[in-house]
Amino acid sequence: MNGWTPRTWTGLAAVSGLLAVAFGAFAAHGVTDPKPVAWLHTGSQYQMAHALAVFAAFGLHRAGARGMGLVAGLFLFGTLIFAGSLYAMALGAPRILGAITPIGGLSFMIGWALLAWRAFTLRDQA
């Protein structure tokens, strides 16, 4: 992922934010069944938070903070699996797909843990 350009990172984060808004709006206006509404709402909340986190992690990566490209990648992967599986189920995919949702959540947690570890082990610049 180190070879990805700023345009790629920014574009993926922006598309992720766009999809979060779209699925959130669909939950609010296009679905009436409570379970799919909840899945769409949860997916869009997590996706939006992590779209913004990708921007932040990539900014830190560009500033020279080691490991932030991996953090951004973990957030994008987590979004794909976590929110993607919830969206798919809300749109009619088999509920067994929910078995992979925690993999996305784990990816989020590993990304946040790596971010925290890097922050606490970074040398202060004077």
Score class of each variant (00 low, 15 high):
F58Q: 12
Y46R: 04
G78Y: 01
A113Q: 01
G30Q: 09
Q47W: 05
M89W: 01
H29P: 11
L106A: 15
A90H: 02
L122I: 06
V37N: 06
L12T: 13
N2S: 15
L86H: 04
H50F: 01
L114H: 06
G64H: 12
F82C: 08
F82A: 07
F55S: 03
A27K: 08
A126Y: 12
T79R: 02
L80S: 05
L106C: 11
H29Y: 14
R118I: 15
T32R: 15
G11N: 05
R62D: 06
M89K: 03
P94D: 13
L19P: 03
G30T: 08
A28G: 15
G17V: 14
A90G: 13
I100K: 00
S16P: 01
L115P: 07
L70G: 13
H61C: 03
G17I: 11
F120L: 15
L74Q: 06
P6C: 09
A126N: 13
M1K: 03
A51R: 02
A113Y: 04
L91E: 12
T8V: 15
W112Q: 01
G69F: 06
G111Y: 02
G78H: 03
G64C: 14
A113H: 08
G84Q: 01
H41N: 13
G111T: 05
A116Y: 02
F77D: 00
F23L: 10
I110P: 07
G92R: 13
P94A: 10
T42G: 05
M89A: 04
W9M: 11
F55E: 02
L60C: 09
G43E: 00
M1R: 04
V15H: 07
S44Y: 07
I81L: 12
A22Q: 06
G24C: 07
V37E: 10
A22N: 05
A51I: 08
V31K: 06
G84D: 05
A38S: 14
L70W: 11
F75Q: 05
F77R: 00
G64L: 13
L114R: 10
A88I: 08
L18H: 02
T121C: 02
W117H: 11
Y87E: 04
D33Y: 11
G73L: 11
G73P: 09
M89L: 10
F75L: 07
H50Y: 02
G105L: 05
W39A: 06
L12R: 04
L19M: 12
G64Q: 14
G92V: 13
H29K: 09
A72V: 04
A90Q: 03
A72G: 08
L80V: 15
L91F: 15
A90M: 13
R62F: 06
D124K: 15
Y87I: 07
H41M: 08
L70N: 04
A83Q: 00
V54Y: 00
A99T: 14
M68K: 00
F82N: 06
H50K: 00
M48R: 03
D124I: 10
T79V: 14
G111L: 02
G105W: 00
A83H: 03
T10L: 15
R7C: 03
R95F: 05
A63V: 11
L115W: 14
V15I: 15
A126C: 07
A63Y: 09
F23E: 01
Y46T: 07
G30M: 04
A22E: 04
L70H: 04
